[in-house]
Write a protein that binds this DNA or RNA. Structure first.
Length: 351
DNA sequence: AATTCGGGGTG
DNA sequence: CACCCAGAATT
């Protein structure tokens, strides 16, 4: 098909040199695909290198602790990817004798592998003719064929998945899949696509109709919700308190300072009241002050976190503490990690 | 069918 | 500021 020919020809000349393209080891391809979910290559690449260095094969990853995997994942976000990565490594190592499934259907049963990732691994490693559908493919197809069905709907998925599969070249599904994604990433870009040098200029519907900036169509999401986070940074001798986040929500299994979430911004007196009311803390806290004058606004895709770090000096910690020298060993949200980089507990203790 | 999961980068 | 990124799991 002429589309594939144009794509693969362009790809041969313009593709980036990326480490996971030098191998068909399912472990490495799988790792790269998980890291790159909703993540730009520039951001994911150093994580991939560190993971391969520390865990050269699936057994190394399987034998690690979840804490270590999360620590290595710190800063990359969507931490369920790291937890599922670890769970799947253990499953493949111990239940599948170290062998990844070789079909889309088999891969789909693994935690953290959905339609896109299954198609990617199956086509790249095992030559299965299954079309990948990611943000790049949505963009190219919607423009080339002039389709305005919203891409973030179940109908959009059906329409574009069928189209992607339809134009897939079964003779070399790996190259076709790689090429269409790379083309979307480098050439048919979200803004300012390189239409003037595009091999599809004569046949692209969006270009002919001047609609490249209107495609793909995406339904707008809700506005981020505001939340107010108050972290209590305890200081007692050389120790502080870290808690592991439990349950379902954001940052599950990562560590943080004790958190007080409120519906509005707190004042120091209100924090003082909270501490005074706590039986565990009564009469042990000598001083409380706000570390950051202005709220640190941490922006997630669905939430804006207005954050205050409260320094709480105490004679005695209410629970078992963590030595400050060990704090950096824990996997923490980058919001906490950034604070730790600027905070010097020894300076504070001197005063 | 919608929502919930992070964080960094762009214009 | 809005939008995007080699999406998946849950509700």
């Amino acid at each position: 098909m002429t589309i594939t020919k144009n794509l693969t020809s362009w790809y041969s000349n313009s593709k980036r040199d990326l480490p996971w393209r030098k191998t068909k080891d399912p472990y490495r391809v799988w790792l790269s695909e998980i890291i790159l979910q909703q993540t730009q290559i520039k951001q994911g690449l150093p994580y991939y290198e560190r993971f391969i260095l520390r865990f050269p094969n699936v057994y190394d990853l399987a034998n690690a602790s979840e804490e270590e995997v999360l620590k290595l994942w710190q800063g990359l976000g969507y931490y369920s990817r790291a937890r599922n990565l670890h769970a799947t490594a253990k499953y493949v190592a111990y239940e599948l004798n170290g062998q990844f499934p070789e079909t889309c259907g088999g891969l789909l049963k693994l935690k953290g592998i959905g339609d896109y990732t299954a198609s990617a691994i199956a086509s790249i490693c095992f030559g299965e003719p299954s079309a990948v559908l990611d943000g790049n493919v949505y963009r190219f197809l919607s423009r080339y064929f002039g389709i305005d069905t919203p891409i973030n709907t179940s109908q959009g998925f059906k329409v574009f998945k069928a189209l992607a599969q339809d134009i897939l070249d079964d003779r070399d599904p790996e190259k076709h899949n790689q090429a269409i994604m790379e083309f979307g990433a480098l050439h048919c870009t979200p803004t300012n696509p390189s239409c003037d040098t595009c091999p599809f200029q004569n046949t692209c519907v969006a270009f002919a109709e001047g609609k490249t900036s209107e495609l793909p169509v995406k339904l707008k999401g809700k506005k981020p919700e505001k939340k107010y986070f108050n972290f209590l940074v305890f200081l007692s001798d050389n120790e502080t308190i870290l808690e592991k986040r439990k349950g379902k929500g954001i940052w599950k299994n990562l560590f943080q300072f004790p958190l007080v979430e409120t519906s509005k911004s707190l004042k120091v007196q209100e924090v003082q009241v909270l501490v005074d009311q706590s039986e565990l803390l009564s009469n042990t806290v000598s001083e409380i002050y706000l570390y950051n004058e202005d709220d640190i606004v941490h922006k997630l895709s669905h939430r804006h976190l207005y954050t205050k770090f409260w320094i709480v000096l105490t004679d005695k910690l209410p629970v078992e503490g963590v030595n400050w020298d060990l704090v950096k060993k824990y996997a923490v949200p980058i919001l906490i990690g950034n604070f730790l980089e600027t905070f010097n507990f020894q300076e504070v203790l001197k005063e």
